[in-house]
Write a protein that binds this DNA or RNA. Structure first.
Lengths: 345, 345
DNA sequence: AGATTCTCCTAAACCGGTTCAGACCACGGG
DNA sequence: CCCGTGGTCTGAACCGGTTTAGGAGAATCT
């Protein structure tokens, strides 16, 4: 196999200095059209591809972005959000010659370490901040590290300033989806509705629960049935057990993700309950499986693929131009299926 | 924020040349113990971290490994194999200062391009080869690119030579799992057993089907019920529909992954069948959800986490030492749950 | 015509490591 | 006393790009 052509090869072949080749390839002014064309032709002939590592060293940027996922592998496997999100990211990176560096860590401690390593090694030019938390420690951490980032959704505006968010936010508003799901249940006649949410420290869990509570309250209904979980199917199942054991048990349960809702269907069946007659269930994220379980699962559809793509585009814009505007995607909406129905007379 | 310390800073501070610092840090001979200690101390004091890009440029290696996944995002999301596998990979990379570069592509065409980009940009020192195919085109491609790799499972030995596999294989034998699952069904009295497999071009699909067929044949049972799918829940569902519509329909179905099996449970319920009385079902990979669907799913357990870890270790050994032995992990075994039962009298 | 400006280009420094040839020194042997 | 020899260290080249200072020559201005 021939050695890869370097910028020197191109320069020699084109009869110019390598500095000029660099100028021509990055189309910067100061190169005559004629010479530029000749250089580009030679580069094409030699199948010249600039060396990423040389360029990284010289420009101090890595032409890659990072994603750190802090979730237990088990949850990760069950939850289709990240794979789709990553596929979307990839779609945006592909055309830009950028790469995605992925880090999967079990807990928060390793999470901080992962960001620090990414920064220390200058592996990436920017990162995605998913699963935002309250007073998210990653934001000051990243600022200290001088690492550009894009947040999925708006972080808490801790200060009084509304515009003190240090990073552009790419948001997919999930509250309309939650509101629609809850309203759907209310319209079906449900009065005792429970909410099984993800970890409270995650912003979206509390935000969705706020939407849940608001909607119930507006309808004059009780809002006391909220159970926090870690997003695993296991905890979704035990939360369901708990709720069904209550004296004044709910007739409908809203779940924070599909795996938990599917586990709940299992629990209900196990108890001989009929769905949706005895219990209505809704999921979140509308994974592929939602259409195929029995009864098919009413779920709130977000679009992780699109979200990933938009987030990646925004991050690239930020790292290359130094600025990127917030992006708002189409809000989540409920997809009604067979797991929700009128409350039994 | 202070600028990061470079090797020059360490050299100056320790009063030696930067070449010697390099020697000391990579503990190579030719540095006196005394000097070495002094250099290491200074390095620690300055919190010196070698620059990955500088080192990459100089050594022509990137200290990262690559994973290219060619699956439709939807399937990816439903199938918990890759997230767990990646988590395992990560666990092995963490301690070695290596990073994982991930590429998710939709189809084979983009897949080849992804490998080529990884190689052309020298982004990674080696890659994982998952979902091996018949006459896998990626093997000659990677050889042409001079890219080290580790295969998950043994590739087809196309030639007569048994040891012509160009890459070390990290294998988790799935046939014992399949055999056990099928035997389990036979023991329960099933005589018409179907197999819903993944894409035939994938080696593991045909290998598992061979195990399936062999086991049935050994018991003198018919082996005609095999349906090929793309691993999606959707095709799992339609395969089930098809099988149940047959005049001489199976009493048990073995599925190639859990999402398809779960979709099959949905279809069966939809038709008013009772599980496992009217139909027994087994899955594959034993995802978290398997325990929580109703009835809980008998599945074949592999260990993607462990697999990922072993594969990563092997790949690192290969890229650093130039050689790595094959690794054989604990074979897959069947986990019996409630979705399989005696055939109805 | 001479000074100024502009365009196009070259040479060299630089990014931060690795590696190699050879300098320097102490030591033991002849 | 001189000469290898071995251990320790320096200096410089090198990896392959980017960037800056400045030079040559043509065009424009005065």
């Amino acid at each position: 196999m021939k050695r890869k052509a370097t910028i020197n090869d191109v320069a020699r072949e084109a009869g110019v200095s390598k500095g000029l080749v660099s100028f021509a390839l990055n189309d910067r002014p100061g190169v005559s059209t004629e010479t530029r064309d000749r250089i580009l032709t030679v580069a094409r002939e030699l199948d010249y591809q600039p060396s990423v590592s040389a360029r990284s060293l010289s420009t101090r940027s890595s032409y890659a972005v990072g994603l750190v996922i802090a979730r237990d592998p088990d949850i990760l496997g069950a939850d289709p959000f990240f794979p789709s999100f990553i596929a979307g990211v990839e779609r945006a990176l592909l055309t830009e010659g950028q790469a995605l560096v992925l880090s999967v860590v079990g807990d928060d401690e390793h999470e901080a370490a992962a960001y620090q390593r990414l920064a220390a090694d200058a592996r990436v030019d920017g990162v995605f901040l998913t699963d935002l938390r309250h007073d998210d420690p990653r934001i000051p951490l990243l600022q200290r590290l001088g690492m550009p980032a894009v947040t999925l959704g708006h972080p808490e505006t801790s200060g009084s300033e509304p515009a003190d968010a240090p990073y552009p936010a790419v948001s997919l508003d999930d509250t309309p989806g939650v509101v629609a799901a809850v309203q759907h249940l209310i319209d079906l006649g449900h009065r005792r509705i429970a909410h099984v949410i993800g970890p409270r420290r995650m912003l979206h869990a509390t935000r969705r629960n706020a939407a849940f509570v608001d909607t119930l309250r507006a309808a004059g209904l009780p809002t006391d049935l909220v159970v926090e979980t870690d997003f695993t199917a296991a905890q979704g199942a035990s939360a369901t057990e708990h709720l069904l054991d209550l004296a004044d048990r709910p007739t409908a349960i809203v779940f924070g993700n599909d795996p938990m809702a599917i586990a709940a269907i299992g629990v209900a069946h196990e108890r001989g309950l009929r769905l949706p007659d005895d219990l209505s269930i809704t999921g979140f994220d509308d994974s592929e499986l939602a259409r195929f379980v029995y009864p098919s699962l009413t779920s709130v559809r977000t679009d992780p693929l699109l979200w990933g793509e938009a987030a990646a585009r925004t991050l690239l814009r930020l790292t290359t131009t130094g600025h990127a505007d917030d992006v708002d995607l189409e809000p989540a909406r409920v997809i009604t299926r067979a797991s929700t129905g009128p409350v039994r007379a």
